[in-house]
Write a protein that binds this DNA or RNA. Structure first.
Length: 308
DNA sequence: AAGGAAGCCAACCGCACTTGT
DNA sequence: TACAAGTGCGGTTGGCTTCCT
């Protein structure tokens, strides 16, 4: 079920590069038993100590991974329920590839599990798209491994046409956006290309395997040599009514911050699409995730919330 | 029935961050 | 301040299973 241990390669215990004769590869039932017994008796401590004291020829890192992803008693095994699947997709659209944050909101599920699930789901989605569009298999194969170099290919063109253009139309017609990005173009493809130069590295990075811009589904604009950055999430515009409140939360946050920050720009009043944070004291380039998630948490997932 | 392709998923890898000295 | 060790995270790998032809 996994790669063969490479006997020629000594394992590295951690990032310090130290080498040890630690076993690699699949865990045996005996090893599992040792780890479980140790953890249930002693609880979690220093992982390298766990490995040693439990009598395992494993590095601490490997023990930690095994415990967290497989042996923890509160883990829920088996297939995801439809509600879980819906929530995962939902959270991923907001949080991007922050697997640990997504898993934190799915009791009994691990980040690895969710990551694997979504990766396979995305592949299925792409396969489905490929069967309904007129681009060839090589476009698809290449797109899976070339996130931001696919501009201009059939696959990208299709995605831009179907998903990006409507969002971009809203974005580019916004007066605040126009003021921030004076050289913006009406062509979203060109905009994506220009993004690297005009917004900095974070913007214009399009991920065809995800559902939007960059791994965080965010687009940034930089001004004042990066001291301020405004954030717009076109995806929120596409969410259903249950997430409109999320957008409202962001606007509320902006208002709160506005009250607390005299440097707030009046441009905010013109921001009739999307959501922006303005102000030098803000943590740049990140959603206020906790506040964001406060509004997402009531999302219905009745059958697994308390069924560990 | 055979074998190749695709999907699944456990575990590894490397990097970044935190903490202690 | 610098360094080392520990930890957590996301990306990736690759063996096993299932599906398809």
């Amino acid at each position: 079920m996994m790669r063969k241990p490479d006997p020629s390669m000594k394992s590295r215990d951690n990032s310090n590069g130290a080498t040890n004769n630690h076993k690699k590869g699949l865990w045996s039932p005996e090893e599992d038993e040792k780890l479980v017994n140790y953890m249930l008796t002693n609880g979690q401590g220093c992982w390298s100590e766990v490995a040693r004291n439990a009598g395992l020829q494993r590095c601490g890192k490997s023990c930690r991974l095994r415990w967290i992803n497989y042996l923890r008693p509160d883990l829920k095994r088996g297939a995801f329920s439809p509600q879980e699947e819906e929530l995962i997709v939902h959270l991923h659209s907001i949080l991007g590839n922050r697997w640990s944050q997504i898993s934190a909101r799915l009791p009994g599920r691990t980040d690895n599990e969710i990551k694997n699930f979504l990766n396979s789901t995305i592949k299925k989605r792409m396969k489905h798209l490929s069967s309904t569009a007129s681009f060839n298999a090589s476009d698809l194969a290449a797109s899976e491994h070339n996130k931001d170099v696919m501009v201009g290919t059939g696959f990208m063109s299709m995605l831009v046409e179907r998903e990006i253009s409507p969002m971009y139309k809203d974005l580019s017609s916004n007066s605040f956006f126009q003021s921030m990005v004076p050289n913006h173009t009406e062509n979203p493809l060109l905009m994506l290309e220009h993004g690297r130069n005009e917004f900095g590295a974070a913007a214009g990075y399009f991920d065809p395997t995800g559902s939007g811009f960059s791994d965080d589904n965010e687009i940034f604009a930089s001004v004042d040599n990066g001291r301020k950055r405004e954030l717009y999430d076109p995806l929120l515009e596409n969410f259903g009514d249950d997430l409109k409140s999320t957008k409202n939360t962001i606007h509320r946050n902006i208002n709160v911050r506005n009250n607390n920050n005299n440097n707030m720009s009046e441009n905010m009043n013109n921001a009739d699409v999307g959501s922006f944070w303005i102000g030098e004291e803000l943590k740049v380039g990140e959603w206020d995730l906790e506040n964001l998630m406060n509004d997402v948490s009531p999302f219905p997932f009745p059958d697994f919330q308390s069924s560990i």
